[in-house]
């Protein structure tokens, strides 16, 4: 369950103040499927960064699964990101020198999971995303769709309660885009809350609820 109240976020771009989020309040129940839509510069990504604890609001409160996470310190927020939130990005953000297997294993490595347990969990995850025979490939040896599937495997390896996806299909051709969307929707059906930023109306229509942002406000 996500509950945002009166979130404000301002940036300084050069001399100019940019009001990225103005008095944003929203709720998302566990297991919801929400698309955040709007023109570029409307604050969609800023909102997603706040939801993912990658950025702190200037004011307002954020409650995640009953915890007031906006009041936590840096280390505690890192722990929340690790255990409760999975990120999927437009540009995949795989570590180029690491194999698909190692990229998926990153969160487990950071949380100190032992190698043999990592081996079984990552192998299972790769297999379930149809990447069983791609474990040793590096990102530059994978297609766009395969890369995004590796990224999704990495985002879900810790069994988070929320998946935040920032234009997950924006850098993919149509068919692999649909494929990725279906994978995300399947995870949503298994109970993970799915919040997706997109400016593609077709993708937006697939969600059960749309949030439209204009000029830093939810319309």
């Amino acid at each position: 369950m996500i509950h945002l109240q009166h979130i404000e976020r301002m940036f300084m771009v050069g001399e100019e103040e940019v009001h990225a989020l103005r008095d944003v309040s929203m709720r998302a129940e566990a297991g919801e499927y929400i698309a955040i839509m709007g023109p570029s510069g409307s604050g969609k990504s800023s909102l997603l960064n706040i939801l993912g604890l990658l950025d702190r609001p200037d004011s307002g409160s954020y409650e995640l699964d009953g915890t007031l996470v906006s009041g936590l310190d840096e280390k505690q927020q890192a722990a929340i990101r690790m255990h409760k939130i999975g990120f999927v990005f437009q540009f995949f953000h795989l570590v180029p020198r690491l194999s698909a297997f190692e990229n998926v294993a990153l969160p487990l490595i950071l949380s100190g999971v032992k190698p043999d347990e990592r081996q079984t969990r990552v192998t299972a995850a790769l297999a379930s995303f149809g990447l069983g025979n791609r474990a040793r490939h590096r990102p530059d040896q994978l297609s766009g769709g395969q890369r995004q599937r590796v990224a999704i495997a990495r985002a879900t390896i810790m069994q988070p309660s929320v998946i935040l996806a920032d234009e997950p299909t924006g850098n993919l051709d149509r068919s692999s885009g649909i494929e990725v969307a279906e994978i995300l929707e399947e995870l949503n059906r298994q109970g993970m809350t799915l919040i997706m930023v997109t400016h593609d109306p077709e993708m937006g229509k697939r969600s059960r609820r749309q949030i439209l942002m204009v000029d830093g406000r939810i319309q």
């Binding site: 993912g52 990658l54 280390k75 890192a78 990101r81 255990h83 953000h93 810790m158």
Partner: peptide, 14 residues
């Protein structure tokens, strides 16, 4: 980007 990603998947500052 890699550092940002490590933070996104739960790496702390430390």
């Amino acid at each position: 980007a890699e550092i940002g990603l490590l933070k996104a998947v739960g790496a702390s500052r430390g």
